[in-house]
């Protein structure tokens, strides 16, 4: 970490004390406040990865928009994918308050220097996968993100409040989709069960490596970016899902899953961390397709962004009123 070795001035040390005191008092750190370089770098990494996950996460679901089996479901799914683009926008804005540009972050995503959530490297093979993603993947995301609403960095915490509200909608819609399938024809029920069987373990992996192997955990906890450990949140998620699966009339694909009276929690079987590491390394089922599609959309859209920038330059002064500041600013940098 940069701050550990950098020579320090008396001013820096005073700033550090103010920062530490603010974090200790659960106050929010704001963009203009002094913050340690490593705190800034960690937040940029985490918020960017979060933003990237929102926009890559549009793909597995958008895959079913044109095939949604009823107009009501199609409308719900379109609204959801639209929300995800919106979440990406909030999160890139939050990252930008730390002094990085959206274009720079997108570059890093496109070149593989920044990651996105491993879960989106799994394919959506049937309509029921849309429900499983809503129930399990969004459910896991919410479990992870609700504590972030209290994270020490103000812009990130506020973005999370908005994101979590919409995500809990999506989660309920996913649950309701699966419920309709589970209570439907035998073919629909089988489709729902198969989707849950495929998405359960990858969803548990969304909480990250076990506590004793989690590289960033200790520091993030000290900075109050992270409030609970990976394993704690994973356990919380399992405990929530078990009764929900039961009321869905579906089973979870884990023979070791059972209530442990002593712990007051469900015990569950071992996670295949080899698979997790492979997916993180880029060897998951859809890593290649996801990043290729993202790059293609960006590259094929270059002429559109250039046109908007050229138009804005010709009409500077009047253009902003027509187009809204953000698009213009973003394309202006492209």
């Amino acid at each position: 970490m940069a701050t550990a070795t950098a020579p320090r001035t008396a001013d820096d040390e005073a700033y550090q004390r103010t920062f530490d005191a603010a974090v200790a008092a659960d106050e929010r750190i704001e963009p203009r406040d002094w913050m340690p370089d490593a705190y800034r770098a960690t937040l940029v990494r985490q918020i960017a990865q979060h933003a990237h996950s929102e926009i890559i996460g549009m793909q597995p679901e958008a895959n079913w928009i044109t095939r949604a089996p009823s107009l009501r479901r199609k409308a719900i799914l379109m609204a959801k994918v639209q929300d995800e683009a919106g979440h990406g926008l909030y999160l890139y804005s939050a990252a930008e308050t730390l002094g990085v540009g959206r274009d720079e972050l997108l570059d890093k995503l496109h070149s593989g220097r920044q990651k996105y959530s491993s879960i989106f490297n799994y394919p959506t093979l049937t309509w029921a996968d849309v429900g499983a993603i809503g129930w399990l993947v969004d459910g896991a995301a919410i479990t992870n993100q609700v504590p972030l609403c209290r994270c020490s960095y103000g812009p990130y915490a506020r973005a999370m409040v908005r994101v979590c509200k919409e995500e809990s909608f999506h989660q309920r819609q996913g649950y309701e989709l699966l419920l309709a399938l589970s209570r439907g024809t035998p073919g629909q029920h089988a489709m729902a069960q198969d989707a849950v069987d495929r998405w359960w373990w990858p969803s548990l992996m969304m909480f990250g490596p076990p506590d004793d192997e989690s590289a960033h955990s200790a520091q993030s906890t000290a900075w109050k970016i992270k409030r609970h450990s990976n394993d704690e949140l994973r356990q919380r998620f399992v405990d929530i899902c078990v009764p929900q699966a039961k009321s869905l009339g579906l089973t979870l694909p884990d023979p070791d899953l059972r209530w442990n009276e002593e712990r007051g929690h469900h015990d569950f079987g071992p996670i295949d961390w080899t698979e997790f590491k492979e997916v993180i390394k880029g060897n998951g089922p859809c890593n290649e397709e996801r990043i290729t599609q993202r790059r293609r959309a960006h590259d094929e859209g270059a002429w559109v962004r250039e046109a908007a920038a050229a138009h804005a330059a010709k009409h500077s002064g009047t253009a902003a009123a027509h187009t809204g500041g953000r698009t213009e600013k973003e394309v202006g940098q492209a």
């Binding site: 683009a85 859209g301 908007a308 953000r326 973003e330």
Partner: peptide
């Protein structure tokens, strides 16, 4: 969806 030239257009 997922193919637009800029996020705002998604």
């Amino acid at each position: 969806m997922g193919h637009a030239p800029v996020l705002e257009e998604e």
